[in-house]
Write a protein that binds this DNA or RNA. Structure first.
Length: 577
RNA sequence: GAUUCUGUAGCUCAGCAGGUAGAGCACCUCCCUUUUAAGGAGGGGGUCCUGGGUUCGAGCCCCAGCAGAAUCACCA
């Protein structure tokens, strides 16, 4: 690593690291540090009357230092929160040697370093519960400076808000923005709450393949990869539906999986290439049962998470209290457009779309047209949780036909805040019907629909052995988390959202520059001017301009170097090596 | 993919009509024994995203590119 590239603050920290070592202190000690409580535990339980917490030891990052002569205050941040440290010179340096305080604490310790402290708890004159430190130990040195975020009366100063910084360096985001940590703790609580419900019913959590040779169970563009030994293409799963149903065929009563799915499609505030869906399948049930179950599940999760069924989402308040409104798709369209589309043929639907000024194209069939009307005119209005029931047949190739209307399917979606949250069926278990539906998808695919489903003959074979009547439901976990934690973007509920790779400019060593005939003194100036590699230097077309720039740089930065001649500069560029 | 906005110190952001790059925090030095986003004084630190162009002169104007955000389209 070329020291010239480091910022001043990084250089100082590396210098401090070296000085610590000279003092015989290991800045990265191997041994465990015994901790007996946490910052928040102390703040919650301490009372001056009880005079408790007489011997505490806590560990965490140093987040602030306020030095006033022989006494100092510092902020320690552990996994639970923050607590103030009170450090006096003579307490941590009982003997004659005051190095620990004067040098190590005051100079060589920086914000971001991990330390362990032992001492007793007391309250300062300002009323702040603090640890009076008797022993201080360096646990790990930070070589990069942390952005400093300050807070007073709930008001945050200098918060790091740049999304790119926050998402790319989530580890820093988590350190300096404590609310970010809470979101992810809540995300895990959501998982726990759901698991608790499913397990209490005796449903089995399972794992099914992520690498699939036929990406089935949804309409979406998959990621393709290749297996070398088998020499076949494999796809990252877009859904796990068909595998879970195979397990129902195998005889389990209920199975569920938190499934990382992958879709090679657009990215935006609500879409990440990999995302999580929880899918559950229960035998001998239908979609009516599943609707009740879904209500129960969501109400429980919302309550487990926030202690109430009400959630603030942006400006709105959403209440997940049972029961949710239930509307058939046709009724919902009637309610929001005044048009009754029941029994309409394709022509009539087309006209309706035109009347409602909805953009359509020739390729759209009946189901797609109805879906367009719903998406344009209805969905946005559904803020409070609402079940939309009985979808057109063409849109649901894995769903059982409606028991009383063959144009419809026994399907519901749960819409919240104008967005689809859950999707569920009475699962299609008639293998002959299923094969026909797949074949229709194949036709779509031949017409150029790159999202149409593939035919999975093994899945058909499984159904031919017999699958009990089953209801299945999928719920977008990322979206659920966004709703329940009031986060506007999917990137805020994923630790590491997908981003374009960072551009890393390579740097040639000074050694390499020297070998190419460039005088040592000029290597650093050249690199500072942006010519980090010999390649970059070779690309220079106007050697006279470079010569000018070099002389200018020399003068401007008062390097005091002897300027090269134009010919010399030309040689640096032309030198073939 | 389209449109709009943004890119200046480690962080948050100023900057004008085109004329030698600024503030606060952070960092460094010195002084201070209980401070509360910030004790006092002084001091360092910048390829103003990149590359072209206009100009005597560009952080600022023009063109192209890169990155990010918002809105829209497709999708969960």
């Amino acid at each position: 690593m070329n020291l010239g590239e480091l910022s001043e603050q990084e250089q100082i920290r590396r210098q401090s690291l070296a000085e610590l070592r000279e003092l015989g202190i290991d800045p990265f000690p191997a041994e465990a540090y015994p901790v007996n409580t946490t910052s928040t535990e102390i703040k919650k339980q301490y009372s001056a009357e009880k005079n408790n917490f007489l011997d505490v030891s806590v560990a965490g990052r140093l987040m602030g230092k306020r030095i006033m002569g022989k006494a100092s205050f510092a902020e320690l941040q552990d996994h639970a929160g923050r607590i103030q440290l009170y450090i006096t010179r003579d307490d941590i340096c009982p003997g004659e040697d005051k190095t620990t305080y004067n040098n190590i604490f005051k100079k060589l310790l920086d914000i971001g370093d991990f330390v362990g402290v032992r001492g007793f708890v007391f309250k300062t004159q300002m009323g702040e519960i603090s640890i009076h430190v008797k022993e201080l130990k360096i646990l790990s040195k930070a070589l990069r400076p942390l952005p400093i975020v300050k807070e007073k009366d709930g008001k945050v100063y200098d918060a790091v808000t740049d999304p790119e910084f926050r998402y790319r360096q989530r580890y820093v985001d988590l350190v300096i923005n404590p609310k970010v940590k809470d979101v992810f703790i809540k995300r895990t609580k959501i998982y726990n709450s759901l698991r608790e419900l499913f397990n209490s019913r005796g449903y089995l959590e399972v794992e099914t393949p992520i690498l699939q040779s036929i990406p089935g169970g949804a309409a979406a563009r998959p990621f393709i990869t290749h297996h070398n030994t088998l020499d076949i293409p494999l796809y990252l799963r877009i859904a796990n539906e068909l595998y879970l149903k195979r397990l129902i065929v195998g005889g389990y009563e209920g199975v569920y999986e938190f499934s990382k799915d992958f879709r090679n499609e657009g990215m935006d505030r609500t879409h990440n290439p990999e995302f999580t869906v929880m899918e559950i399948y229960v035998a001998y049930k239908d979609y009516n049962w599943m609707m009740d179950f879904t209500e129960e599940m969501i109400e429980k999760t919302a309550f487990d998470l926030n202690g109430t069924t009400k959630v603030k989402v942006g400006e709105k308040e959403i209440d997940f209290k049972r029961p949710f409104k239930r509307l058939s798709m046709i009724d919902s369209i009637k309610e929001y457009t005044g048009v009754d589309i029941s029994g309409m043929n394709e022509e009539q639907l087309r006209k309706t779309c035109k009347d409602l000024s909805i953009e359509i194209d020739e390729s759209m069939g009946k189901g797609k047209l109805i879906d367009e009307i719903f998406g344009e005119k209805v969905e946005d209005h559904l803020i409070q949780p609402t079940f939309i029931i009985d979808y057109p047949l063409e849109m649901s190739p894995l769903c059982k036909k409606h028991r009383s209307n063959p144009d419809l399917t026994e399907r519901f979606e749960l819409i919240v805040n104008g967005q689809e949250l859950c999707n569920a069926y009475s699962e299609l278990n008639d293998p002959v019907d299923q094969l026909e539906r797949f074949q229709e998808q194949l036709k779509l695919s031949e017409k150029g629909d790159d999202e149409a489903m593939y035919i999975d003959y093994d899945f058909i074979r499984a159904l031919e052995y017999g699958m009990p009547p089953t209801s299945g439901m999928g719920i977008g976990i990322d979206r659920l988390t966004m709703l329940l934690t009031n986060q506007p973007s999917i990137q805020d509920v994923l630790f590491f959202p997908q981003m374009r790779p960072e551009k890393k400019d390579s740097v040639d060593s000074p050694e390499k520059f020297r070998k190419a005939g460039i005088p040592e003194d000029w290597v650093e100036p050249l690199q500072k001017m942006g010519y980090k590699t010999l390649g970059a230097l070779r690309k220079v077309e106007k050697y006279k301009k470079l010569h000018q720039d070099l002389c200018g740089f020399n003068k401007k930065n008062k390097l005091g170097l002897k300027n090269p001649t134009q010919d010399e500069v030309k040689m640096w560029i032309d030198n073939p090596l």
